[in-house]
Design a protein around this nucleic acid. Structure first.
Length: 466
RNA sequence: GCUCCGGUAGUGUAGUCCGGCCAAUCAUGUCGGCCUUUCGAGCCGAUGACUCGGGUUCGAAUCCCGGCCGGAGCACCA
């Protein structure tokens, strides 16, 4: 491929971006980087009824999080006049006609490869009807592009270019009543903006075919169409409309609810932009469908987080334990590296006086056994919990489990929101004071988590994965 | 139903156009070992796939035909 490529990412502003959009956006950007050229962001809001005004903000935010940069930006509702202009040109070329047939009737004719009576009207009559279109009632007329009535696929035959919509548009109000259909606006814009390669889902296969007729009518060069397959996300309902309904019903907390497949939900869970990017580059543009498993994402993300995340002790489902007979000499402060592979990052300090919180499960699983408290002492989990020994060697000898702990006096309260939106509560070591929102840490033996908020000294994390 | 398109290990992916170097790549997962004061990481090893049946050919994941399975579209949504 020589020369510059021009690509566009063209979402419908019906909500925030989801993982499926991420694929299109990232792949578009990748092509731009690989071949040199530019990326256009084009918001496709030509159906006033299907616009979520918040999406105009959310889409760029999500793209920025993904690290996708674009050079030009267009909003189709700013360009309605352009579509009108080209609609008129198409009529003048004799390649479009006003159709006032009831939908049912037209479909019947179309399926039988029959022209309707409107198709043969003169260009002059069509222009006259076109001029009158803004005054007509919604649903009473459309502008159709002439294709091939013999086309094997009835869906391709004489498709609709413009229609009447009697609704207020969130951005441009009631200025227009005649709106373009997606296929018309897209093809006109792709040509006018010089798009060379169109990357789209295979659900647009028939649309690409439809659009080719328009390019040919105008004598335009047809861009390269590249179709990719459906992306299914394990355990996730991708559909924006389902998510919206769930949010309205209070089932989900918002667009960034951890159960959703939106970019913002994924980001909130501590998934790195780079992990998503690697995933999308690996999946690529093949037309066969693919199912993405969370384990795959976690694996990619873990490779990134393992190095960057400092370690902390946090105990959930805590149970307080008082160690009997703990020698005073062993009380004091435990120092532990923030990251075992990067001692340069320094140490955390955790006070240890024999009164601690342990995870209930660690207690239950180790009845009548010796348990090693990391970097502290070994304790015996009998009727009473007693001091056993202090060295790591002794713990090894006893085959002791080595567990994390949190001092019962000196700590911060912590919550951990899991992927199913359940929250675990407990305590985190006091050195967590240094953390700020958006930090991603590894809670030792629990997993990676992103600090989502700090309120009244209580830290709330979102769980990423083990 | 009609039109079109797919099907490589658990998952994703390379290879398919231009048949041989593919007893099929890489990643992720899973299992095992070593190491480790995390059930993490690292290192080592293992596991596991060409949808099926015919055909063409000296030779087929790759070409042809058919079956099976799956998907998309069939809107005055995008």
């Amino acid at each position: 491929m020589d020369g510059k490529v021009v690509l566009r990412f063209a979402p419908n502003p019906s909500g925030p971006l989801h993982i499926g959009h991420a694929r299109a956006a990232i792949l578009n950007q990748e092509y731009m980087n690989r071949y040199g050229g530019k990326l256009i962001l084009r918001v496709e809001d030509t159906d006033p009824r299907r616009v979520d005004p918040d999406a105009y903000q959310m889409i760029p935010e999500d793209l920025k999080w993904l690290g996708v940069q674009w050079q030009e930006e267009y909003i189709q509702s700013d360009r309605i006049e352009i579509y009108h202009e080209y609609a008129r040109k198409l009529i003048e070329l004799g390649e479009a006609y006003m159709c006032t047939c009831p939908g049912e009737e037209f479909k019947k004719l179309k399926d039988a490869s029959q022209a309707c009576s409107c198709r043969d009207m003169s260009i002059e009559d069509n222009l006259e009807r076109w001029e009158g279109m803004p005054e007509m009632a919604e649903g009473t007329a459309v502008l159709r592009v002439k294709t091939d009535l013999e086309h094997k696929n009835p869906a391709i035959r004489d498709w609709v270019a413009m229609r009447i919509v009697d609704a207020e548009h969130p951005r441009i109000g009631t200025k227009f009543r005649v709106y373009p259909m997606m296929n018309f606006a897209v093809a006109v814009d792709d040509h006018l903006l010089g798009v060379t390669h169109v990357l789209r889902g295979k659900d647009h296969l028939a649309n690409s075919e439809k659009q080719k007729y328009l390019y040919n009518h105008f004598g335009w060069d047809v861009p390269e169409f590249i179709h990719y397959g459906r992306l299914k996300m394990e355990d996730i309902a991708l559909s924006t409309s389902k998510a919206r309904a769930g949010i309205e019903d209070g089932l989900y907390t918002g667009w960034d609810d951890p159960r959703l497949g939106t970019i913002r939900a994924i980001a909130r869970r501590g998934i790195m932009q780079e992990a998503i990017r690697e995933l999308m580059l690996e999946i690529g543009v093949k037309i066969a469908d693919s199912t993405v498993s969370w384990k795959k994402i976690y694996g990619l993300n873990r490779n990134l987080l393992e190095e960057s995340s400092n370690r902390y002790f946090a105990v959930f489902n805590p149970e307080k334990v008082v160690i009997k007979d703990l020698p005073n000499s062993l009380k004091g402060t435990v120092k532990r590296v923030k990251h075992p592979d990067f001692p340069d990052r320094g140490y955390r300090e955790i006070p240890f006086d024999g009164e601690i919180y342990l995870d209930k499960k660690d207690i239950e699983d180790n009845q009548n056994k010796v348990l090693r408290l990391m970097d502290a002492v070994n304790i015996f989990m009998g009727e009473e919990i007693t001091y056993h020994s202090s060295s790591l060697g002794d713990a090894r000898k006893e085959g002791a489990r080595i567990v994390h702990w949190v001092p019962s006096e000196s700590n911060n309260r912590v919550g951990l929101v899991m992927p199913d939106a359940e929250t675990l509560y407990g305590y985190i070591e006091p050195s967590s004071d240094v953390l700020s929102v958006d930090d991603i840490v590894q809670l030792e033996r629990v997993g990676f988590a992103r600090l989502d908020s700090i309120q009244d000294g209580k830290l709330t994390f979102y769980f990423a994965h083990k």
